[in-house]
Design a protein around this nucleic acid. Sequence first.
RNA 1: CCGACGGGGCGAUCGGUCGCCCCGGUGACGCUUGCGUCGCCGGGGAGGAAAGUCCGGACUCCGCAGGGCGGGACGCUCCCGGAACCGUUUCGGCGGGACCGGGGGGCCCCUUUGCCAGAUCGAAGGGGACGGAAAGUGCCACAGAAAACAUACCGCCCGCCUUCGCGCCCGGGUUGGGCGCGGCAGGCCCCGGAAAACGGGGACGUGUCGCGUCAGAGCGGUGCGCCGAAGACGGGCAAGGGUGAAAAGGUGGUGUAAGAGACCACCGGACGGCGCCGCAAGGCGCGUCGCACGGCAAACCCCGUCCGGAGCAAGACCAAAUAGGGAACUGGAGGCAGCCCGCCUCAUUUCCGCGGCGCGCAAGCGCGGCGGGAGCAGUUCCGGGUAGGUCGCGUCAGAUGAAUGACCGACCUCCGCUUUGCGCGGAGGGACAGAAUCCGGCUUAUGACCUCCGUCGGUCAA
RNA 2: GGGCGAUUAGCUCAGCUGGCUAGAGCACUACCUUGACAUGGUAGGGGUCACAGGUUCAAGUCCUGUAUCGCCCA
Length: 105
Amino acid sequence: MREGRRLAGRYAVIWSAPGGAPGGARLGVVAAKRVFRRAVDRNRAKRLLREAFRLNRNALRRDVDVVLLARAAILEAGRAAVERDLLALAARARLLADGKEPELR
RNA sequence: CCGACGGGGCGAUCGGUCGCCCCGGUGACGCUUGCGUCGCCGGGGAGGAAAGUCCGGACUCCGCAGGGCGGGACGCUCCCGGAACCGUUUCGGCGGGACCGGGGGGCCCCUUUGCCAGAUCGAAGGGGACGGAAAGUGCCACAGAAAACAUACCGCCCGCCUUCGCGCCCGGGUUGGGCGCGGCAGGCCCCGGAAAACGGGGACGUGUCGCGUCAGAGCGGUGCGCCGAAGACGGGCAAGGGUGAAAAGGUGGUGUAAGAGACCACCGGACGGCGCCGCAAGGCGCGUCGCACGGCAAACCCCGUCCGGAGCAAGACCAAAUAGGGAACUGGAGGCAGCCCGCCUCAUUUCCGCGGCGCGCAAGCGCGGCGGGAGCAGUUCCGGGUAGGUCGCGUCAGAUGAAUGACCGACCUCCGCUUUGCGCGGAGGGACAGAAUCCGGCUUAUGACCUCCGUCGGUCAA
RNA sequence: GGGCGAUUAGCUCAGCUGGCUAGAGCACUACCUUGACAUGGUAGGGGUCACAGGUUCAAGUCCUGUAUCGCCCA
């Protein structure tokens, strides 16, 4: 991951590196204690990122590993907004599976 | 009835789909043959505070025969209930128990109010970390005379002394004054006279002088004074003054030089005296005391009860590499020979013991040999221990970076539109907040709803 | 997870066994010194003692709770 690519979005920062598993891309989530002081906020941030990743896992390339770092603004966002942010980031990082274009608006 | 605030309870509905963590079962695949990945079935999956870490306990290690010092925590009394846990047990129970809740009682403080007033008391409401201030030590700033074995600043009173004033008495009686008498002079009136000259008389009391008498200030007095003032000294008193958070009972009287519980009445108070009531904390009565002995112990401290220390990052087990420790065994290198025994050459730190050879008169020195120990080197083994791992943490959550989410529907709440209903649209299902060994307590944070309680406001009725 | 400590002026710190006006240095302001500046001198301003409650006649100090910051232990 130290050599991986990094891109920042509104609600998250994404790292990516070659890897992957038979089931598809693997995920790691990070919520820093400096950013989210309360444990309930850290859990909320990680759950939002995890859900957004799960719902869009098939849209991503299968041969990469991904780490998502939550940013402070994510607490104000809903699930759909986090999903859109994640897909936009994946597109910029060239992480989308071949032949599939995100439906960005 | 409504609203606000405080306190308490509760912190939450049903169904479906897709995912996550753990356990049990099962199947497929992969290979380092016991794990990994994926799937299916069944079960379980955050809180009242999981939080703060303020306490108590279980548990673990250290220590351990027992106790003390030091340090710390708690503190009215009685009853009932709950309680993690501990001890004991005949497994029914019994005893203890940090702490929590409820009720009754006592004591103290504050506010309001009622007593003529005051000390103080009663009532109502509220509050109390509520053992001891008569074991000891310490502190009580400023102000005030005095702040804790009370004191005497101002003040009140008495005595004495000094000075002064006032009054009285006495002495002295200047100038002057009043009264009386007298002399002289002057004016006025009357008579004589021509006359305003002169003479006589009269009244007046104008001036002056003398005598007598009366009063008499200033001044003086070792004088007197139920007079007064000031000051010094000696003594009595503690009522009044004012300061302060706090000043040694209150009111009225008697009394006194002045006063004071000095004495008296009533009220209040104290008692480590007695009696009675109450399980007790305490209360009441009697008696005694004219009534000195304040506050602070969330100051040191004393009394009673309790506590050994550290903490799951405790601790237990498995255990690589490297370095170091211990034990046992072996003793280097080369050549000859090669089945074994063996033989030759070179090298070999130090100590002890034994005997041998050589030199030397001797002490001793040198040479090589045997045995033992240490060191060194090698091999093997052992233990400690680091990285790492497993357990601790199994009990209906069980993680070594930590799992509970998303969507749909029902239902509910609120807002808007609509004449109501029906219906439509929108928002929301809410706050505080996420287990990390477990349990109990405390504290703090909290939306909606509920209603038990309290305070305040509004409206309605009586 | 567990065990501890601190908070006083803009900054760094004192403040004893509760009491007198909460002080010191740097910084800031004004004036003096200089042609001007630095330095120096004089004077001055600036404090919810982190917050809340309690004990006490009286709290920065004592007690309790809260908040924030920091340290240590595998």
